[in-house]
Design a protein around this nucleic acid. Structure first.
Lengths: 228, 228
DNA sequence: TTCCTAGACTTAACGCTGTTAAGTTTCGGA
DNA sequence: TCCGAAACTTAACAGCGTTAAGTCTAGGAA
């Protein structure tokens, strides 16, 4: 037959066109700029045609962001190979901030605007899977750091540690985005600034006396000590 | 005459009514819920009447937030009396977070939504005045901490330190607001959580070896050492 | 007292938004 | 040849911020 298949494929194609048009608008001008009518005009369909492929505007944007956000996940997968949890935390923080600054509109939508709890069943991202879910990744790393005795003894709760670190990086990112043009904040260069945020966070959670150098030798030493 | 005065007073009254009606909507349901038509209905005027008192919708909301935000300033004025900069930083962080959680819609508007650079001449708040501008307050405190030699030697830039600390607190606040109902984050109790964020930030910026106890004796010791 | 003008306010409208009900077109299968 | 389903369009609704034009009121001047 191959007939139904063709139908499905064609429908998938239109869906793709919608997403591409929406992405272009979204990346260039943000959520507000994406209107059903503009998308429709871009793909030369009527506005209502979009509703045959997506429940509503939110569904379009969610589909868009979900797929784009998987790009962050692929970066995290590489970082997962870093053995030392502290080093991994640093790398993840840097990657997270970098991604956010490169995709400000995505970031804004995902982490800076309140949602009706984004139904997980229609999302591409597997919650809790540390290869797809950034929070799960940090949680895992925080847990390892605790296990290996690297953190201050009062910080014995991985969830809490993850939330602290996430807060610091997210705060930096979101302030930078929202207040980048305010005359009353004299922003320091991005690279130096985010490095400082990460360094202060790491110092703040590390057990005192632990050398915070980013060297492999230090890492292995720490791991040995943790085993003992 | 007293005639023009009455006219002015009457106009001021209507202005006040508009702001009160807008505040009610804003506090209860957020920015989106405030529509010119709803405000008008609440005060029993036509929607266009509002434009005789405010340039546009944004002006209404800005006037609203400006006055409400001065309440935070009064709390900061009390905290300014704390002598030890580190202790002051802690207190300010706590007050900031508390204010944000109590006035989420104000906070969201002021710090979580991008603005066309909010023209300072039509604002009530004096930028740079640490009694009115929260950022100026933190900047001043960070500067004192550096002067007194309390911070890590590499953190010699008050602006940078202020931005780091602000990031951490703001990050915590804004994540909590945006993602409070997400099933994939197991938020720790608010009090414990914000205390931990502040503590980690302080530890992270403090010169190693400096006791981070919140005791007056420690404070005076530190100040003596700084003079030496 | 009568007329004029300034200011406060309203009515009606414009162009925009997301969304829906109803109608049209197309095309494979019976 | 006709049917039915799917894809798509047209027209419309209710809402939004905002504006142009008109009305109404009341103090000041003649």
């Amino acid at each position: 037959m191959g007939l139904k298949e063709r139908r499905v494929r064609e429908k998938e194609e239109v869906r793709g066109k919608i997403l591409d048009a929406a992405r272009e608008l979204f990346v260039a001008e943000g959520y507000e700029a994406v209107t059903m009518r503009k998308i429709a005009q871009a793909i030369e369909y009527s506005p209502t045609a979009i509703y045959l492929h997506f429940r509503d505007k939110e569904a379009v944007i969610n589909a868009l962001c979900d797929t784009d956000f998987l790009k962050l996940a692929t970066r995290f997968r590489k970082i997962a190979e870093v053995a030392d949890p502290i080093e991994r935390l640093r790398a993840a923080g840097l990657a997270y901030a970098d991604f956010a600054m490169r995709h400000p509109n995505h970031y804004r939508l995902m982490f800076m605007t309140p949602h009706p709890p984004h139904s997980p069943e229609e999302s591409v991202i597997e919650v809790g899977n540390r290869d797809q879910d950034a929070y799960a990744f940090v949680l895992w790393t925080a847990g390892e750091a605790i296990e290996q005795g690297l953190l201050r003894p009062e910080l014995d709760d991985a969830e809490l540690v993850a939330q602290i670190v996430w807060s610091a990086i997210h705060g930096w990112v979101s302030l930078r985005m929202t207040k980048c043009n305010e005359p009353w904040v004299d922003w320091r260069p991005q690279k130096r600034s985010i490095a400082a945020v990460i360094e202060v966070s790491v110092r703040g959670i590390l057990r005192p006396g632990t050398p915070a150098v980013s060297a492999v030798s230090a890492t292995t030493k720490r791991q040995k000590r943790a085993k003992a």
